[in-house]
Structure formats: C-alpha cells, structure tokens
C-alpha cells in the first residue's frame, strides 16, 4: 500500500524534489505538515483528515447569503473567510437597491471562486451556466477533506454516482453538496454520500460504492 498515517513533523523523504501538498522542506528533507495520510507518488502529498476549507481560485463552492451590502452579497462558504459576490458578477444587470429581490439573505447559491487576494478577500462569481441560486433539491454538508474522494480520480466516482442515482449533483469544494432528483433517489444519494464520507480514507472505494448501490437498488425493487 502506498499510503501511511503521518503526523506533523514526520520525515517523508530525503529528496527535496518530492515535496508536495501538505509537506515542507527543511535541510533538503521532506517533512509532513499535517496529521493525515501520506500519498507516495512522484510527489509526496499529505491529505489531511480534518481542517477548514481555504478558498482557492476556480473552486466551485456552495454558499449561503448572510448579508447584503451596497454592492456585494456576503456569502458564507463554510470557511474562515466570507465570500463576496459583487453585483456585477450576477448574470443579469441589476440595480443595487434591488439586490435582495434576486438573492435574499438565507438563499443558497452555487458559485465559483473568482479570485482570492493575499489578505484572503474572496471574490465569487455567478457568471456560468452551471452556477446559480438553489431552488430545488437538498444541500448536505461533509468535511471538505473528503471531497476529492467523492469526485474520484478524473471524476470517476461522481460521474458514476450521477448515472446510477439518477440525480443532479453539484459538488462544492467547501464540502457542501447539492443533490436534485426524485425523493427516493435523493434519499439513496444522501446515504451514499455519507457512506463515502465515512469511508473516504479506505482503498477501492468506487467498487464498493457500486456494489452498495446495486444492493440498495435490489432491496428497493
């Protein structure tokens, strides 16, 4: 097996070039920065077992509008930093006194992080067909550290889920997931996502989930 539990300060490699995410180099040696699982590939990455989501440009996130200012919606994105959705990032041109007509406080939105500056001012955008306000379906929250497993290698897990579950799924990098489908399908989707969260650190997860879905479906019919 090519993964191992490591704690901060564990020596991972003697080769400084193999330092990846979640590691640091001291005196030409690679050490772990985090408590998590070390992945030995070309680069050594340490995948954390816990931690807060830190926004990065290009991430899709699901947020909840928590305040409205003169020209920005302030969006809670499940992170230490709030997202700012500027009025000009709304797909339609709107007046600033009409902002609450379009996105009210408490509205969930699927957005993308447009830019993050060094002081962690997070700019969001809605300018994409995939993005927008959430009107139907449900949003569930998992730890953001489990999101890569939910997506799978090259999107293998998520595309399988969409097909098998008959649901529309939008995965926010911040650990919020939107599911939309029939009531039964959504129930199963919810169960599956929570199962993936629980078993995210195990091997051969996709195969096991396929089997789990097969069994669940048999039980239903």
């Amino acid at each position: 097996m090519d993964r191992k539990v490591v704690i901060p300060g564990d020596l991972l490699s003697e080769d400084a070039k193999r330092s990846g995410e979640g590691t640091f180099v001291k005196d030409g040696q690679v050490y772990s920065l985090l408590y998590g699982l070390a992945n030995y590939r070309d680069k050594i990455n340490v995948i954390p077992l816990a931690g807060k989501y830190v926004p990065a440009p290009g991430d899709n996130v699901i947020g909840v509008v928590k305040d409205i200012t003169f020209s920005n919606w302030i969006v809670d994105i499940n992170s230490p930093y709030d997202g700012l959705l500027h009025i000009s990032e709304y797909p339609k041109r709107i007046e600033s006194d009409e902002m609450s007509k379009y996105l009210r406080i408490g509205t969930s939105v699927m957005t993308r992080v447009k830019d993050v500056d060094p002081t962690m001012k997070v700019e969001l955008t809605l300018n994409d067909r995939k993005l927008g306000m959430i009107k139907t379906g449900q949003v569930i929250e998992i730890s953001h550290t489990r999101v890569p497993r939910l997506i799978g290698k090259g999107g293998s897990m998520i595309s399988m889920l969409k097909k098998e579950l008959n649901c529309n799924i939008f995965v926010g990098q911040n650990g919020r997931i939107w599911i939309n489908g029939s009531a039964d399908d959504m129930d199963l989707a919810l169960k599956t996502v929570l199962l993936i969260e629980k078993e995210a650190h195990t091997n051969g997860l996709t195969d096991r989930i396929v089997e789990f879905l097969k069994k669940e479906k048999e039980a239903r019919s």
Binding site: P8, K26, L34
Partner: peptide, 11 residues
C-alpha cells in the same frame, strides 16, 4: 491542534 488539521512543523 494536529487533530484539528492545523499545519504544524512538528508536535
């Protein structure tokens, strides 16, 4: 702190 996933150089 380690359990919280906070990056540290060591314990």
């Amino acid at each position: 702190l380690a359990d919280a996933g906070i990056p540290m150089k060591s314990l």
